[in-house]
Write a protein that binds this DNA or RNA. Sequence first.
DNA 1: TCACAAATTTATAACGTTATAAATTTGGCA
DNA 2: TGCCAAATTTATAACGTTATAAATTTGTGA
Lengths: 344, 344
Amino acid sequence: MKLGTGTVTKRPTLKTVAEKTGLAVTTVSKALNGAPEIAAKTRLLVENAAREIGYVPDRAAQRLRTGKTNVISLVLSPHDEILGFSNSLTLGLSRALRGTNYNLLVTPSFEESTEIKTIEKIVRNKMADGIIFSRTEPFDERVRFLIENGFPFVCHGRTELSSKHSFVDYDNEEFARLAVSQLAAKGRKRLFAVMPDRKFTFYGHLKYGFTSAAADVGVSYAVPEEVNLDSAPDEIYACIAKHIEEGRSPDGYVCAGEVAAMTIMACLSDHNMMVGRDVDIVAKQTSRVFDHIRPRVDTIIENIAEAGALMGEMLLDDISNPNAIREGFVQRPEKEFPDLNPAG
Amino acid sequence: MKLGTGTVTKRPTLKTVAEKTGLAVTTVSKALNGAPEIAAKTRLLVENAAREIGYVPDRAAQRLRTGKTNVISLVLSPHDEILGFSNSLTLGLSRALRGTNYNLLVTPSFEESTEIKTIEKIVRNKMADGIIFSRTEPFDERVRFLIENGFPFVCHGRTELSSKHSFVDYDNEEFARLAVSQLAAKGRKRLFAVMPDRKFTFYGHLKYGFTSAAADVGVSYAVPEEVNLDSAPDEIYACIAKHIEEGRSPDGYVCAGEVAAMTIMACLSDHNMMVGRDVDIVAKQTSRVFDHIRPRVDTIIENIAEAGALMGEMLLDDISNPNAIREGFVQRPEKEFPDLNPAG
DNA sequence: TCACAAATTTATAACGTTATAAATTTGGCA
DNA sequence: TGCCAAATTTATAACGTTATAAATTTGTGA
């Protein structure tokens, strides 16, 4: 479809359609927006004329008039793992937005501390109709801010705040239990878990899952204090290496992050520890990297794209029903990726 | 910063600032936009007042009035590898946009065929001031369309079109040469290269690089016809497996895609072929996954985040200087990642 | 001090849309 | 046929900004 080769024909507006049909601008607007008072034959007339001359409403004008941006903003944390996480989230979200007339604005924060500023800016400047973000904390300031301002949002992870709000979370407690059972089933006794930063809500869920499962199946589990899932790979590597070299190596690892899990595997390999023989790992898998990594490790899947799609749908719902009661959804751990994910 | 707890105070507008300062709306507008005719003391007065009451211009109104969207659109292909590519691109782009008042709209196409439609839509609906996309073909229809419509864009990859246009490409020819030399230096003689789809510009560059380097250093190289870098990992795996099982295994692999390279490694491992002993691989590295994969393989880096940042800067330039002569930039292969990349 | 140019400020209109209220047309029924 | 309510269409104003042109103020030199 060429748009006037060189000759810049101005975009058709409501006025253009009005002139073509001999109707008033208002009528055309109403006809295209499905106002009930418009006669059926008028609506048809307008729709045909609009299609014929390729009329598309001007978003800026609509936005100025109605105050709606038709934009959803995905606020990324600097730590959203370059591997998989934000990518899958974006993809899932886009899938939910497909077919709607919402667009996706991606706003990375470059420092953790600026994330709340980013959100404040989006709200203050009305840059979007709703916000999506992740890495929720129990008393998350972003959540508080958004609730206080009545701004629609869906976050990835629960909070412990009293106000209900939309969220999509993952059952990390169950993840922890499954992981511990799997390792126990392989005869592993001394486990080692790389945990997220304590400040995140899912730290608690994991911890509770680990503790109870470890007690249930009679294994021990330790957490290295000096690193967490967001630590630089080098630091995680060094930490694991130190334990191995000091003879304090566990016989099973649980890791709720892909990069950290890969780092552990690299470290084990470099120390001639064989996964499956000397040690076992259960990793949380959020992308498909582990499909291509050897030795194979046990993984438990967290489907981020699905979470993203769900968050998108929930957010659209929240935007159109500002007064509805907010609900959360908790994803269950899965064994297999569904096949609708793009390869990778 | 709380925005009126519950009490919805309307956003300040130019009018608000005008009333506060006793000046006309026009004057305020000009003062804030740096118009030269505004007296210094007036400008200061306005700036202070604006800051004080937290005035932020309404984008929708600006956009309606000026026709500028202040949005850059990143159009993603369904094949942009879930691992790294689009993520790094997004990050780099965001970095370039940081500090400007441009926002990043991410628009994934879900089918390859709809990508041109996506772009047409962005242009027709003036959804952005400029477009970024990748996977350029020699006679790319997207490039043709955008040039024809005088719409600013920067693509990742060159074309063979006669009109000059902005692009950022990677020296894949050099990549191929380096890869072949590295393998030859290790004594490898029969190489195997998984190539991109023939339709892409960089197919030609790689091919030329391979052919000339192979001739120079006296090795052979073959390309499996049935798969390319975008093939499903399963297919690549099956293809490599078949060659190994039929005794036609090469002793060196070159792979310009991360996922494909990992797949090859997995296949080799599953067939008890040891990288470094039975076979060697040189992979193109666009994320940091290979840092964490064992056995270590030789990689040659293509810094996508840097490319993204560069593309962003070029696009902003192109937007502000519509009549400037367009130029391209070709990235050189690198040995190391710079350290400004977020961990991962 | 006055005239006039330069400097600065201002009023008006417009971008394209939709909410509101007013105007017109239609159709039913006496 | 004529009246009235219902159905449908229309005019007007407004969202917040900036381009344009007009108006005002300031400063300079005679």
